[in-house]
Amino acid sequence: MKNITKFLMGLLCLGMIFTSCSKDDTDYNAIEEKMRQELIRQYKTKKQQAQAIKDYAATKFTNPKFSSDSTGIWYEVISEGTGDPFDYTTSIPKISVNYKGELIDGTVFAATKEGTPANYSNLVYTYRESTQGQYLGGCWYFAFVPESVNNNGTDQKVYGLLPKGLKKGSKIRLITPSVWGFDNRAYKIGDGPSIPADSPLVYTIEVVNMEKATSN
């Protein structure tokens, strides 16, 4: 269970908050206030973008589904997949995927080449910025993990889009508020076009393979 907890903390400890979390002389009241203000900011952003995201899903998705007010993500399952659900109570997965990332206007800012899936040694690296430019947004977390994981006999909600999460062969399309993408900063992946700040993102993700990561 400690692995999924570490993964969740990567989403909760943001920016300066994350830095503070690693210090022994932490002012926890200050951290709590920063997190509160961050959650308020995220809520306002999701609310501002909600209608545009809903309209996109209604017109572009065949069978759109709304995840929750907590995420603000709309999605559709293109293929259920044939693999077994991944056990997040023991590990974070190593993944191989075909994907395409778009803006609402249809601009493709990143995509795998046909027959050449992207490989990540740990799902964490899809939302943790790296020297390889692998940052793709926190929405990948919600796409992959299940709705909840069992912790010592108790189901702990982790806000995944699907009851059992993605598995080998799964294919999903989603549109996410900018807070789970690149948030309030402009961004650029490789040679792709610039992504404006506060941009909702559209991802199509096909899971080629999932297996236990060698490190978490």
Rank of each mutant, 00 (worst) to 15 (best):
I92N: 11
G106N: 09
L166D: 01
S20L: 15
Y125W: 00
I40K: 00
V77A: 04
P117L: 10
F109T: 07
S67K: 09
F66V: 05
K54L: 06
Y88I: 08
K54R: 15
S194K: 12
N209E: 15
N98W: 02
N184G: 04
Q51Y: 04
I4D: 05
P85G: 11
F142P: 05
E80H: 02
L201G: 11
S91E: 08
E33T: 08
G192Y: 02
T154L: 04
K54E: 14
K23I: 08
G133N: 04
I73Y: 03
K94Q: 15
G10L: 07
G106A: 09
A57K: 07
V145S: 04
T214N: 06
C139T: 12
A118S: 15
T107A: 05
G101I: 12
D84P: 06
I104N: 00
D27R: 04
F144V: 12
S130F: 00
T26V: 14
N209M: 02
T71L: 10
N184W: 01
I31E: 14
M16I: 12
D183E: 10
E32S: 14
Q42R: 15
K34R: 06
N29M: 06
L201V: 08
N216R: 08
V208T: 02
F86W: 05
E76D: 11
S215T: 08
Y125E: 06
E102C: 14
L161A: 08
M210I: 07
I17M: 10
K65H: 04
K44E: 15
N29Y: 04
L12N: 12
T5E: 14
E206F: 01
S194F: 04
K113F: 03
K65P: 02
P177N: 10
E206L: 01
V77T: 10
F182A: 02
A213V: 06
Y187A: 14
A58W: 01
G165E: 00
A143C: 14
M16V: 11
E80G: 00
M1A: 12
K60D: 06
S121N: 08
Y125V: 02
G192S: 09
S121H: 03
I92F: 01
F142K: 12
N98V: 01
K100I: 03
K94A: 14
V207N: 00
E147Y: 01
I73W: 05
I175S: 08
I95D: 02
W140R: 03
Q134T: 15
G192P: 07
Q37K: 15
K171Q: 11
W140E: 09
L14S: 10
I73F: 03
K94R: 13
L162Q: 11
A186P: 10
S199W: 03
A213E: 00
D155F: 07
T45F: 02
Q48R: 09
S79N: 15
E114L: 10
T71Q: 07
V77Q: 05
K23S: 12
T90W: 00
T26C: 14
I104M: 09
S22V: 07
I31H: 07
G15C: 07
N152V: 12
I172P: 13
I172G: 11
I95L: 13
P177K: 09
N122K: 05
Y88A: 09
G160V: 08
G15L: 05
A52W: 00
V108A: 13
K212A: 15
Q51W: 00
D191A: 05
Y120D: 09
I73G: 04
A30D: 10
W180E: 04
E38R: 14
Q132P: 02
S199G: 07
S70E: 15
